[in-house]
Design a protein around this nucleic acid. Sequence first.
DNA 1: AAAAGCAAGAATATCGATATTCCCTTGCCT
DNA 2: AGGCAAGGGAATATCGATATTCTTGCTTTT
Lengths: 224, 224
Amino acid sequence: MTATTRTASRTQMVYDGLRADILSGVLRPGSPLRLQVAADRYQVSMSVLREALTRLVEHRLAVLTPNRGFRVVEVSRADLLELGELLQLLAGLALEKSMRLGDLRWEARVVSAHHVLEHTAQLHQDGSPTDEWVRAHADFHNALGEACGSPRLLDYLRTLLHSSELYQQLAGTPDVDMAEHALAEDRELMVLATTRKTDEARALLDRHVQRSVDWLLDNLPVED
Amino acid sequence: MTATTRTASRTQMVYDGLRADILSGVLRPGSPLRLQVAADRYQVSMSVLREALTRLVEHRLAVLTPNRGFRVVEVSRADLLELGELLQLLAGLALEKSMRLGDLRWEARVVSAHHVLEHTAQLHQDGSPTDEWVRAHADFHNALGEACGSPRLLDYLRTLLHSSELYQQLAGTPDVDMAEHALAEDRELMVLATTRKTDEARALLDRHVQRSVDWLLDNLPVED
DNA sequence: AAAAGCAAGAATATCGATATTCCCTTGCCT
DNA sequence: AGGCAAGGGAATATCGATATTCTTGCTTTT
């Protein structure tokens, strides 16, 4: 008899833990994920560990090479560009549908997520962004699309946003201008969404994503 | 010592087998996937079976309810509508990028896939579509986007096309008008793509998808 | 000296068994 | 008679061990 979980499966907990470790930089891109080591670290057997890793692979946060094991996914400028393109297209679609279909509860969810975002400390004392802020930022953008009524779209958007968290983590400290401008855009986005100004909101979201990608491209510490 | 595979992992083979069985209708939507039964059927242990099933869940061909096991995914009109919307948007994007970036090898790939499609028997003697034709049709549409240079987009398109295979399988026998019209559109699509008529090709692809979805909606044997 | 072959070690992939959870039946209480 | 609770059976979830594969460095051969 062991102290067993009553709420979430072990696989789910390990998946969450691994994803958090990748997105926070504890596990660096490209580094191998040794099964025995990870199994000890997370106190689970290799079966559940492999199941969690398999899900990470499908979400493009890890890579599996047959008979050579799992590694944390690599990043690249090309992938970042693709990520931005898909985010513009799909986050825009989700936002538009949400503005058409969303009710008052959705508006409240958006306002709530934005409130958290605005009142979460953005930077550590050393200037790097806090995990909490990155998470709150992703959650706000998630909320914008949550009333779109399209489960597939929402699922895929979530994986895209997770990938974007990885790039933000790697790019490090944003300069003050960039940070303040992004915050102002987020606020305007919240206002436009809840007042159903569809075209303006989509246009602003496009610019918002474009600006983020451009900044990340300039600050990514990778060559290719 | 057992006769071991030298080419693909067991998980990959089981995944391919399960997907084929779902898409060909051997495993019906909503039916439970008993682990022990499936493990015996595919001659593998539960670990590799669970890993294959986990991938199927991520690709939306199966569903996992904690402590209640895996089931084949359910279909619905709402999901089909969403599928069509995403296919129009993303297959259109992939096609456009391929027409911009594709070289002669891509054109050859498209022509080749279309040749196979055109010369594969479309219907069984009982009037139902053959698995080979459904597969060839999906492969042709896959080829159209293959030069887009966007791995994420291509991966996701593949999962969307797999889901569409499931709906086609369930809808059963197309009438002769529908079948011939679709074939004519596929041929025109091939011509427009290889002659780089971008706008016409996208417009036609949109209509092609829309027509398919409309027909599937009329012929799906589901209520909701 | 260079290249091919071999062997030892390490890591992954797979397996079969055990522990846990859930469902359904049976019996008891009101 | 109806409802609730405990128990048996079946299915899932998890584990630890075994088999397989890959890497690496050494030996052997030309």
